[in-house]
Design a protein around this nucleic acid. Structure first.
Length: 398
DNA sequence: TTCTCAAGCGGCCATTCGGC
DNA sequence: GCCGAATGGCCGCTTGAGAA
């Protein structure tokens, strides 16, 4: 069997010639142990040659890395090894020392730099925002070692920022601190639990961009006046289904279950395919699309309900010059807002808009057919309310 | 679409273990 | 003290959930 360690006088020539062990064509580490200075050696891997020292301490072998060949020449490594061995003889474990030094010295600023410099791709905007937040709200913490921060420090500072600058500033500033700390924690396990665990986060309102109910009638009139029927029907479809815009844009005729009056959404963001009940108005809309001249002629072979010229073959980001300002996602928010204004359970709303629910992990059941009938009534209620709002008949009551 | 965060995976390397 | 093997951690990469 090939030896994994070889006694040799470590010289430049010996190190240059040192090769890793190769078993079945796979390179494995091989140790070259110096015959001149006991405890000094070279670890040769597939790509690197690393000097080390090794000595038994308290019954266990402690091996300390000196550095890579190329950075160190043999003489420098041997000298370093000699010093390390002297200290190890005195009972000092250099690995423990190294660990403690690293932990004790890394500051919040360094951790933040490490976090932002990591190989994860981040936009310029993100980097700018993180730096701004750290310098704006935690500037006096940047030079402080992470190991010094306590849970009380984090909790108190978060509260103070909240009072001085508002809850959103406090939360975002501490998200930055948390991320930087967690990055450091990947390197320094000794840092322990992230002290932001003690932060009493301020509640945040989810930003919504629903079309105000008073504007819905005007919006509806503008939609009906659109010259392109595909765009017109797409906007109404998003509003009436509450689907995410990509899911709505990519629905196919084969996704429509006419018999069960349902639409299959095969790949929503949640990952779980689900069936959405189709209200009367949605069925009418889809039948209208089927009967449309454009569908029968120009897009006769298209699998898409909202076909378009272009790479995907279906509609993409329609931008219309509307009097009523809105976004496509805002139509989904409008659906949710209207649903919330009705006497519909939060669970049913979550199911309808495909948000995560407590039973989310149950993906083995496939499509959620048992939910379909339970959701049919609330879906019809939402559609009826949206129709009334669009026709302007409920504006004064909502 | 963009971003954070978490988790999984494989390859490689630093460190530890245990027998001699 | 030496030696071979095992272990565990780091790194790069990918994927996916969730939020906005």
């Amino acid at each position: 069997m090939a030896k994994t360690s070889i006694p040799v006088k470590l010289t430049k020539t010996a190190v240059d010639n040192a090769q890793p062990l190769v078993i079945d064509g796979v390179p494995r580490q091989r140790l070259y142990l110096d015959t001149e200075l006991k405890g000094f050696g070279l670890c040769v891997g597939a790509r690197t040659k690393t000097f080390f020292t090794q000595r038994d301490m308290n019954g266990k072998t402690v091996r300390v890395t000196i550095g890579r060949y190329g950075v160190y020449i043999v003489a420098q490594a041997r000298e370093e090894a000699r010093e390390l061995l002297i200290r190890m003889t005195k009972g000092i474990n250099p690995n423990r020392e190294k660990e403690q030094r690293r932990t004790a010295s890394m500051t919040f600023g360094e951790a933040l730099t490490m976090h932002l410099d990591s190989n994860k791709r981040r936009s310029e905007r993100t980097i700018h925002d993180y730096r701004y937040l750290a310098e704006q709200y935690l500037s006096d913490w940047l030079g402080r070692p992470l190991i010094e921060f306590t849970r009380k420090d984090c909790r108190d500072r978060h509260q103070k920022i909240g009072i001085d600058h508002g809850p959103y500033a406090a939360n975002t500033a501490f998200r930055v601190f948390r991320a930087a700390y967690n990055s450091a924690l990947k390197v320094h396990e000794e840092l322990g639990v992230n002290p932001t665990i003690a932060v009493d986060w301020f509640p945040e309102e989810r930003r919504k961009a629903a079309i105000p109910s008073v504007d819905l009638a005007a919006w509806f009139r503008e939609v009906l006046a659109l010259p392109n029927p595909v765009r017109r029907d797409y906007l109404l479809f998003v509003m009436l289904t509450g689907l995410r815009r990509q899911n709505a844009a990519s629905v196919r005729w084969s996704d429509v279950d006419w018999a069960n009056r349902a639409l299959l959404v095969p790949s929503p963001k949640s990952g779980r395919p689900f069936q959405l009940p189709l209200s009367d108005l949605l069925l009418d809309l889809l039948k209208g699309r089927q009967g449309c001249e454009q569908t029968k002629t120009v897009f006769a072979d298209s699998p898409w309900i909202f076909p378009a010229d272009g790479k995907t073959g279906h509609i993409s980001e329609p931008r219309e010059d509307f009097g009523v300002s809105f976004t496509i996602h805002g139509l989904r928010n409008t659906f949710i807002t209207v649903a919330e204004s009705l006497d519909i359970s939060p669970y049913a709303i979550k199911m309808l808009v495909n948000h995560s629910t407590p039973d989310k992990q149950d993906v083995t059941a496939g499509y959620i057919t048992p939910e379909l009938e339970r959701l049919r009534k609330p879906m019809q209620q939402i559609t009826d309310r949206l129709r009334a709002l669009c026709q302007g008949s409920l504006v004064t009551r909502v």
